[in-house]
Design a protein around this nucleic acid. Sequence first.
DNA 1: TGAGTGCAAGTTCAAATGAACACAATGGTA
DNA 2: TACCATTGTGTTCATTTGAACTTGCACTCA
Lengths: 208, 208
Amino acid sequence: MLTERQRGILEFIQSEQREKGITPSTREIQHHFGFASQTSVMQYIDALERKGFLDRHARKARALITPVQKVRITDIPIYGQIPAGMATLTEQTIEGHISLDTRSVNASKNGRTFALRVHGDSMIDAHILDGDIVILEDRKDVQNGDIVAALIDGETTLKRYVTEHGRPYLKAENPLYPNLVPARELRIQGVLVSLVRKQIAAPRRKRG
Amino acid sequence: MLTERQRGILEFIQSEQREKGITPSTREIQHHFGFASQTSVMQYIDALERKGFLDRHARKARALITPVQKVRITDIPIYGQIPAGMATLTEQTIEGHISLDTRSVNASKNGRTFALRVHGDSMIDAHILDGDIVILEDRKDVQNGDIVAALIDGETTLKRYVTEHGRPYLKAENPLYPNLVPARELRIQGVLVSLVRKQIAAPRRKRG
DNA sequence: TGAGTGCAAGTTCAAATGAACACAATGGTA
DNA sequence: TACCATTGTGTTCATTTGAACTTGCACTCA
């Protein structure tokens, strides 16, 4: 699809974006490859754009969008708790951020994506551990069997959403924890789309 | 630390970088905030740089480096198999890439980081599932209890590294699988540092 | 043989862009 | 009071930078 030279140009642009954080100008590319004319670079950029390996913001400096940028990193805020609904998700309650490329997350474009740090082992049978970071999406279409973050007694907890005989309830994936049948409304805050676990260096026990 | 306006400017720069992939020019920032003069923006950028919230490439267009870029995303290659040792980890065997910020991974600076897609349920009791992506590091200091990728019978498998009476062996975290005591040498390819799970939308079964 | 494509050089332009300097108002602090 | 940081305007300058047009060579394909 690409010629040797074209691939070289694209890789140089990408490596500069990754290492320096900025896109090289056409002259900078020119000098790196030792071209006598800047026009050569323009032609390569034309070819790369035509073949779909590059997007360009016309007449803007250093404005080449390569797959490095395209696989947009979503900078997801990590919350400790979501006490009073999504409205209170302010900057203050953010514990940190996590970055993932969009392919790694099952996230759709619509919903807002956020993350929670898991407390406790109530979802251990779903293989979600204490300390895991779960990526959730503020979505409307919750389905039977989805793992969700819900507001119960003023606290956000992670549970499996199950409907039985048309009535929804929340199921813990640990026999030690009871199921939760909502008395009134059920406030779903997000649906699990992805999970990130930072492995601890020296595990104390093999199983819980 | 930052004034309201300064934070607003920084957030605008970051949101443009995230959404459009390119850093706004000083004039673009000016027009977004309705300033009559471009100098105002220059002053804010000065302040942000002085306070350490921004890095600047002098005299280069659209060359502001914000924390969005700083938390360098490590573009980790995902391999399906590592048959014949690290030497054969060529571009061809790469299944894809995954991006994580360096904080999310336990990765040290020394070792090379790579990823494997997990096949099978031999590590189910360590809560590692079929289809999970495990992030590993090519490290020398393997410790008792670490989960490692090792080469066994020409195939890469994920197992727990256990030493007993001074002799190392590989333990599957599933009673259905046998332990593996190496006859000769043990080829450790990487130590588990992190894990990413892409949640499937509609789970068919709750447990294996 | 002619058309098309990739590659490279030379030249010139206009716009985009970072930067500098002068001036001024405000609010807090030493 | 004097000093300083913050905020804002107005103006000007020198580069930087993308872009356009031309010419030339080599190679492939019809």
